[in-house]
């Protein structure tokens, strides 16, 4: 018995190509049925995400299974699929890497594990998962958990929005009921505000030199518009200030903030300065309870997280290798050492 993995991912195919081969949740049952009809395929799990379309199959003849899969995909999409393929043990290693986020576009992302679990559950429900596949996927979930806890592969945020969310979380804990003020209705402030909203921020005040623009953005994100001349009036009640005005001078200075901070009774203030040139005087970061991050420091944290993750890859790979060995021992104990690689007759 062999484990076959075949598919295409974000490294091999552009999104225009990937989207043509993607399998929707509602089509998964039919797809699994067709895959099981391929000669020599005993079981199949199909993983379809925005970054990859992959088949994991238990098969007596991987070569035939691969050709069958290629035909099904070509028939679906109307074009030849640029497939990669692996058999045992590389297929096992590949799944463990995928589930652990090592094969993802943003290395160490954790969403993929949920998607792998979902794909496995769909196959199990459709009766398409055989004993080796059950064992393989259960093992993959354990590997992913172990890689996550024993290394820093998921450490830190990797985009400006997620950095802002993490920092806000480290200042305020829960973001539910926190209030945000946006000064200057730029696209990046909007994205950052949306990231914060996705974590529970309820109240957003938008203030812009052009009131109409503020009103439009406020309507779009479910916030409230405020005339730019009055932004200081809302200052006492906010927790997070996102600033990205086109002002030629600094609008947040220690002199301006000092009387406003007194109104806050010691509550912390998170200032996200996304403007270039900057809106906030860097020295406000020295003020008690004020945490200032400009675009450079946010980007630096994102890239720092990615560096940490990249440095962890070797540790993850060696952990995965131990698990591959463990899984192969189990396979040998069940099926003997006669697993057939590609190019040889079953």
């Amino acid at each position: 018995m062999n484990i076959l993995c075949a598919g295409l991912n974000h490294r091999m195919a552009h999104i225009d190509v990937r989207e043509r081969f993607a399998v929707r949740e509602t089509e998964m049952g039919d797809m699994l049925g067709r895959l099981r009809e391929i000669e020599g395929v005993t079981g199949a799990v199909m993983l379809s995400t925005c970054n990859r379309v992959e088949l994991y199959a238990s098969s007596l003849c991987p070569l035939r299974a691969l050709e069958g899969f290629r035909l099904i995909l070509a028939d679906r999409a109307g074009l030849e699929a640029p497939l990669y393929h692996h058999d045992t043990p590389h297929a096992v290693r590949h799944l463990f890497r995928v589930a652990s986020g090592l094969d993802s576009m943003v290395i160490g992302e954790t969403e993929i594990l949920g998607q792998v679990k979902k794909a496995y559950a769909a196959a199990a429900e459709a009766g398409a998962a055989t004993r080796p596949l059950h064992k393989l996927f259960q093992h993959a979930f354990r590997v992913a958990k172990s890689v996550r806890t024993a290394t820093q592969i998921t450490s830190g945020p990797t985009s400006i929005g997620s950095v802002a969310v993490e920092l806000a979380g480290k200042i305020f804990g829960s973001l539910v009921d926190r209030r945000v003020m946006i000064l200057g209705a730029g696209e990046i402030s909007e994205r950052t505000a949306r990231s914060l909203q996705s974590r529970g921020v309820r109240s957003v005040i938008v203030s812009n030199r052009t009131y109409e623009r503020a009103a439009a953005l406020a309507a779009e994100i479910g916030g409230m518009a405020l005339h730019f001349d009055h932004w200081e009036k809302g200052f006492a009640d906010i927790d997070i200030l996102i600033s990205s005005t086109n002002a030629p001078h600094m609008i947040l200075t220690p002199e301006k903030l000092e009387p406003l901070l007194k109104l806050r009774r010691g509550a912390p203030l998170f200032v996200i300065d996304l403007a270039v040139p900057r809106d906030a005087d860097p020295s406000i970061n020295e003020m008690d309870g004020v945490f200032l991050y400009d675009i450079d420091s946010l980007e630096q944290i994102a890239s720092q997280s990615l560096d940490v993750r990249r440095q962890e890859v070797d540790r993850c790979e060696s952990l995965i290798e131990q698990h591959v060995g463990g899984f192969l021992s189990w396979m040998r104990s069940i099926h003997g050492p006669e697993a057939t690689p590609f190019g040889k007759k079953a």
């Binding site: 820093q152 450490s155 830190g156 993490e166 920092l167 979380g169 480290k170 200042i171 305020f172 804990g173 912390p268 970061n285 945490f291 200032l292 991050y293 420091s297 630096q300 944290i301 720092q304 940490v308």
Partner: peptide, 23 residues
């Protein structure tokens, strides 16, 4: 420690594991 990490704007890995300052 956590406040120092936040003020530094270059948080060390320990920052991600310390609780929020409000908590």
């Amino acid at each position: 420690v956590q406040e120092g990490q936040l003020k530094s704007r270059r948080p060390a890995p320990i920052f991600h594991h310390l609780p929020p300052i409000s908590i």
